[in-house]
Nucleic acid binder design. Sequence first.
DNA 1: CGAAGTATTGAAGTGAATCAACCGTTGTGG
DNA 2: CCACAACGGTTGATTCACTTCAATACTTCG
Lengths: 242, 242
Amino acid sequence: MTIRQDIHSAGIPVLCQSCEARHRGLCGALEPDQLIELSKTSSRRGVSPGAELTGDAEVVERYSNVLSGVVKLTKSLSDGRQQIVGLQFAPDFLGRPFKSESAISAEAATEVSLCSFPRSVIERMMKLSPGLEHRLLKQTLNELDEAREWMLALGRKTASEKVASFLLMIARNIDPATDPAAKSASFELPLTRADIADFLGLTIETVSRQLTRLRASDVIRIENNRHVTVDNLSHLEQRCGD
Amino acid sequence: MTIRQDIHSAGIPVLCQSCEARHRGLCGALEPDQLIELSKTSSRRGVSPGAELTGDAEVVERYSNVLSGVVKLTKSLSDGRQQIVGLQFAPDFLGRPFKSESAISAEAATEVSLCSFPRSVIERMMKLSPGLEHRLLKQTLNELDEAREWMLALGRKTASEKVASFLLMIARNIDPATDPAAKSASFELPLTRADIADFLGLTIETVSRQLTRLRASDVIRIENNRHVTVDNLSHLEQRCGD
DNA sequence: CGAAGTATTGAAGTGAATCAACCGTTGTGG
DNA sequence: CCACAACGGTTGATTCACTTCAATACTTCG
């Protein structure tokens, strides 16, 4: 048994062996020798909430995998109005291939751990191994589905439906280990009220009021502003409008 | 000269020879023999405005390329509120690979011409030729960029900024032949007021009022409700907020 | 012509934004 | 060790942009 395990992970870089990105993320498409090559130029780093990972209209020379934590992708108008257009969880890939400027900025929402590597290396590998591009296509299609899901929310849902939908999305993403069909959930909100507002196209005050209403209706419990418990997820689902 | 042309298009199915999808779309990634194989099972068809191409939560057995016209992608809430989450122009690919149900419905916004083929054939080809998947990835990444652009608009732009942004987007898409740096534009709106409202997360009345305001400010001219002329596109850009 | 569909315009209502005050926690330095 | 500033969050009063409701026009087509 231990021998089989050894054989199976033979040649895989130590750092990669228990890595989320290799199990469920992009690196799962790589052969051991490719993992070795990539790991030569890759480096792990932790960043703190608020740290800007890639700025708007900035040339990006390194791509990353999110290993833990939550990264927010934001777009802004010239007068400062801001919208979060995506949240990246582990083991999502972070980067915009085939385009150096992306008009999106990425910022750590929580403590984040990243594994980053040079743009050039991964792009070269993508040419050689179709499996890599295939995984990237799948993730991109999923992100597109999510973006469109939120377009519906932003354009047509009420403030309370938006907040309910947001909580449900977080509950489903924050701990993927939990059964997707679980009845209850308990988690730390990865975003501040300001971030939630920027995600839902609302103001801080409106978000706060809606959370208060959900609490008053016994749909959720809140401790320390951040910790949310949902005893019955279906109550939340009923408030999402869809 | 004519000989070279003959040699170059040797073996390419007649229908494909002048096809937009082969020049700028997905089929550009296919070799002549693959084009021949695909064309055996593909068929062109025209559909009229309002025709539903693929319904919500419906199993999709055929994918398509848009050859002309505009297709709207919509999502709905249970009470009927609707949001357009994407517009597809020629030569966009229409379909959601790797997922039979898509939670999105597609409907012709104008007279539309499609070239459709069985899901299975294109998915098999995708496994064999990485170039195909590469093109699809590129289109998907572009659609994701666009979706996020509209998330910003839906969440943070005012009604008048939304309408200005919409007109600008249409002006840039409707006739890709025109210089992207052109100063003026003149075009038929591919959407009704109701569709524009569903796209921008507004009501018909608000869209109408904002168009009236733009007309009153001499930014646009409108004839027959549908034909719009923009003498100075930069005036429109200034009203987009970004 | 008349009916149906599409668009404009006006008046009234409302959901969320804005403006403003206050609370609780955290961290800092006198 | 405490005063207090900084920050994040809640709550209330008021305002306003957009919706809703309603009436009227335009366009198209049998």
